[in-house]
Each structure stands twice: as structure tokens, then as C-alpha cells.
């Protein structure tokens, strides 16, 4: 149990990674798993939290910020990512800007079958779009977030960080 607690992905790790990578804006729709992260982000003066109404707005709002020379990230859930498909296509993949999208992996389970269809389709969705992704389940995986930023910058493409839902400690 103690070991499991130590491994839990802390929201502070995400914020540290954002700061390390010069993030200026976090475009987000809060979900049931990220409330504590949301509250922590609001306390950080160096980043601006941009709440949106539906996930399709995330890549397009990010494009405007990118054009302005800022460094946005999108923080959404896999359900919303699928809703945002056309915006990901037109406003991220076709745009030629680096973009990291942090995506809550609802339904993720390391063992056995998931009862949640959104988990079943998440990785096939990303593969269909040709978007590379990194799975982050534990705090020790945090440096993969910087890898995602590095890849986004070098390829000028969107890169996704999937947050393995089963393990994280974002809600308290």
C-alpha cells in the first residue's frame, strides 16, 4: 500500500513538467479525475487556465495561442478527444505547430478487459490520426511528459500524453 501511494502520479509532477517546458496556457475542460490538478493550476501565476465549453475548442484555441508565440497545452479526457477529432485534424495536425495534449485515459486498466468502450477505442483513434503518444501511470513516468514536449517541438506536430486513470492521484 505504501509503495502504491509512493508511485501515484501526483498532479504537482504535471505542473512541474509544464513549468519546465515553458507552458503559458492550459486549455481545459475539468473532468471528474482532475479537480485537484485544476485547483493547483489556478494557484500558479505563471500559467493561465483557459476553461472551454467543449473539447473541439482546445486545439483551435491552442493554435491561436501558438500563433501569438505562446506555449499552450490541452488538458482533456479521451471521450472529449474523440469529440474533437475534426479540430485535431484541421487545427493541430494540419497547422504545423507543436502541441502537447494531456489526455485522461478513462477506462484504462493494465490487466484484464476494460468495461469502458472509450478505453477500447482510445489508442486506435490516435493511431488512425498518426499521433504518437506516451502512457503515464506513475510518478516515475513523469519525465515522459518532457519527452512528449521534445517530440512535439522537433516534429511540429501534436503529441499526446495518456494519463493512466487507474493510478493517478489527481482527485482527493
Amino acid at each position: 500500500m505504501v509503495q502504491q501511494q509512493a508511485e501515484i502520479l501526483r498532479p504537482e509532477t504535471l505542473i512541474d513538467e509544464f513549468k519546465k517546458n515553458g507552458v503559458t496556457h492550459v486549455i481545459t475542460i475539468p473532468d471528474s479525475e482532475t479537480n485537484y490538478l485544476y485547483e493547483l493550476m489556478l494557484d500558479e501565476e505563471w500559467m493561465d487556465v483557459v476553461p472551454i465549453s467543449r473539447e473541439g475548442e482546445a486545439p483551435s484555441t491552442a493554435l491561436g495561442l501558438n500563433i501569438a508565440g505562446k506555449t499552450p497545452v490541452c488538458l482533456i479526457q479521451n471521450t472529449g478527444m474523440m469529440e474533437a477529432g475534426d479540430s485535431i485534424r484541421g487545427m493541430a495536425l494540419d497547422a504545423g505547430f507543436p502541441l502537447v495534449m494531456i489526455v485522461g485515459y478513462r477506462g484504462w486498466t493494465r490487466r484484464g478487459a476494460t468495461p469502458d468502450s472509450v478505453a477500447k477505442y482510445t489508442e486506435p483513434f490516435l493511431n488512425a490520426f498518426g499521433i504518437n503518444y506516451y502512457l503515464v501511470e506513475h510518478d516515475s513516468d513523469g519525465d515522459r511528459i518532457s519527452e512528449a514536449f521534445d517530440e512535439a517541438r522537433s516534429t511540429k506536430r501534436p503529441v499526446v500524453v495518456l494519463i493512466g486513470d487507474e493510478y493517478h492521484g489527481f482527485n482527493r
Binding site: H25, E57, S60, T61, L63, G64, I67, K70, M91
Partner: peptide, 22 residues
């Protein structure tokens, strides 16, 4: 002038992001 049309209805959100960034 910026030509940002692409995804359905999303140009407005891109303009919104631009306004926040500048």
C-alpha cells in the same frame, strides 16, 4: 490578416486564442 479556416466552427476559437495571446 490571418486565414485560419479549417475545422467546422473552430476559427472563432482560434481567434479567441490569438486574443488571449496578444
Amino acid at each position: 490578416d490571418l486565414r485560419l479556416e479549417s475545422s467546422m466552427g473552430q476559427t472563432t476559437s482560434a481567434a479567441f486564442g490569438l486574443a488571449l495571446g496578444m
